[in-house]
């Protein structure tokens, strides 16, 4: 089953990814092919099998909350595309 144009645009919107018309067509084709290949998993019996999120089974890793120096603001802001004082400058969120 081929993904619809609307489905591709919906996913792109969830991912905040701008696409060209050409991208939409290409992804309809390619993603549909890849998803079709995932159908192979329907053959596997997973009754009563728990999921694995990672493989070394560490759980709830805790450490003491100790005070230590963090990076200087100037270092962090050095890569900022737009800044104002010691802040990242962003476009208005509420319009």
């Amino acid at each position: 089953m081929k993904l619809s144009r609307e489905e591709v645009l919906h996913i792109a919107r969830l991912a905040r990814l701008g696409l060209t018309e050409e991208d939409v067509d290409k992804f309809r084709e390619q993603l549909s092919n890849i998803l079709e290949n995932f159908e192979i998993l329907q053959q596997v019996d997973i009754t009563d099998v728990p999921p694995t999120a990672q493989s070394v089974m560490l759980q709830n890793v805790m450490r003491d909350d100790t005070v230590a120096p963090s990076l200087p603001p100037e270092d962090i802001l050095a890569n900022a595309p737009r800044r104002e004082g010691d802040c990242f400058r962003v476009r208005a969120v509420l319009e």
Partner: peptide, 18 residues
Amino acid sequence: RQYGFGAEVKRRIMLGTY
């Protein structure tokens, strides 16, 4: 994200988001 990422990265972001 459109201009910053290449084709394979976009493909995987789309696949994963789906």
